[in-house]
Design a protein around this nucleic acid. Sequence first.
DNA 1: GTCTCCAATCACCGAACGGTAACCGGAGCG
DNA 2: CGCTCCGGTTACCGTTCGGTGATTGGAGAC
Lengths: 206, 206
Amino acid sequence: MADATTRATPRLSRSARRIQLMSAAKAAFVTQGYHAAAMDDIADRAGVSKPVLYQHFPSKLELYLALLNESADEMVRLVRAALAATTDNHERVDNAVAAYFSFVADNGQAYRLIFESDLRGQLDVERIVERSTDDCISAITDTITTDTGVDVEQARLLASGMVGLSQVSARYWLQQSPHVSRAEAIELLSTLMWRGISWFPRQEPV
Amino acid sequence: MADATTRATPRLSRSARRIQLMSAAKAAFVTQGYHAAAMDDIADRAGVSKPVLYQHFPSKLELYLALLNESADEMVRLVRAALAATTDNHERVDNAVAAYFSFVADNGQAYRLIFESDLRGQLDVERIVERSTDDCISAITDTITTDTGVDVEQARLLASGMVGLSQVSARYWLQQSPHVSRAEAIELLSTLMWRGISWFPRQEPV
DNA sequence: GTCTCCAATCACCGAACGGTAACCGGAGCG
DNA sequence: CGCTCCGGTTACCGTTCGGTGATTGGAGAC
């Protein structure tokens, strides 16, 4: 059994080839962005030539959408799981921040497809990105509205702020804070967030 | 004096034409993104033909960079002014959040050039975007470190979170919260932020 | 052995788009 | 009157890149 991941044409089965192509495409899109990544590049990365790519994906856009959907789903899954893992809201905040850090740091930079997409004006793309962010906001909003007296639309705004805080700080940490450990960073930011949000409930804070 | 802004070829002076071209280009880049906006489009929007564009800007990239720089400077200016306008940190938080809302809502969508740029891999662009965000973070960090006992790198992380909160929530508000007034939104989010950050000082909070 | 899939290749097309060379025409001045 | 700027235009080039038609070749069924 030889190395079949990046070597030249060991004649893979259709499904295996598809997975490998998606992995190669992901690497290309993540490092170069949608426009700079040419289909030839992606095929080359997979050690294969272009028409093979087109036997698995009908167009560059479809290929990108497949990857984008995958990543968006993963992000939403992580956030939902973080909130569902406990009923203690303090822990929920911790977990949710940790979820964003995990998504940003542990998924081969897939976050770039969502947060730094260089495809604009493409309705499908915008819809997926917006939908995934909205799903995260909705999940957080549910918790806020059930545990506080805040009106739904205001709660969504608060949730969007929390999502933004997590997103941006996680990326900032990843790229600019080499001396702060992941745990420290999560602790710091979830503290900031918890102290902010815990005052809103009619229930007792802190 | 006839309408000279979008009408056909009233033979403008060099400087007037340049301003008009930048305005047309801004509109094009903002609505279509860098890649989708063709130089022909931009020229058309200005009611002028392509070579005129190239008499004022050496390349598409240079044109884009000029606009990007302008917007980035404006954002940093707004945030700096917000923080400098008072020495009361509670007010500073209010003002800073309001500054982001103002930048997002009052500048002809110029924020899209920074927060939704579809030019990746271009070093110049990344540098400008990163620099402008860093300048905002630095401004906030200064306040945090002088008024709290938090270590600088940790303070920068907190600041990045606050920047993210403002950025994302301001954009969310603009697009998704038609029933919440701007003042309400700012009030809500700056409250969230202030309650979070005001616990960090050695000085008394609230 | 040979027939037949089907993965994979080579070579190509056409459109879009950044950028440029050559030309035009009206307003002011001598 | 006519000369000369200079803001303008038309028409074009070359490259890049998404996408495809015709072809090859090795592995398994009989």
